[in-house]
């Protein structure tokens, strides 16, 4: 259950942006890849458990799930899900082009209009 650790790091990073602006945090947008090793539902549970005592108490968590995508670095051919990770044409080891994201993309803040 490393999702709590991820939420702690997430809230800390958000606070770095929100606190100096004296802002209210309204919404967080994160991207979680299929092969990131993070369970999205556990992440939501961890976030909901953790957030009341933080700057994110009123902030919704928006999770963008990213599907895994493997392709050949040589010929750019996309590999079918579950297939062996060698290019069927040129034999090169495939490269993961999407799906390992654990990324804070955007924070929506409500800042005082001074």
């Amino acid at each position: 259950m490393h999702e709590y650790g991820i939420v702690a790091a997430l809230v800390e990073r958000v606070a770095e942006e929100a606190a100096p602006r004296r802002a209210r945090v309204r919404r967080l947008h994160v991207a979680i890849g299929e092969l990131a090793g993070v369970d999205v539902e556990l992440l939501r549970t961890a976030y909901d458990t953790f957030r009341p005592a933080t700057l994110c108490a009123d902030a919704e968590l928006d999770v963008r799930a990213v599907a895994a995508a493997w392709s050949c670095p040589g010929c750019a051919r996309a590999l079918a899900p579950g297939a062996p990770l060698q290019c069927p044409v040129c034999g090169r080891p495939a490269r993961l082009t999407a799906g390992d994201e654990i990324v804070l993309e955007r924070i929506e803040l409500e800042v005082p209009d001074v």
């Binding site: 991820i6 790091a9 990073r13 800042v111």
Partner: peptide
């Protein structure tokens, strides 16, 4: 205290960047 403005802060960083 006056109107509040909504702003979007683009971060695009790994959450485990500290690690």
């Amino acid at each position: 205290c006056g109107d509040r403005e909504l702003v979007a802060v683009e971060v695009h960083e790994r959450i485990l960047a500290g690690n």
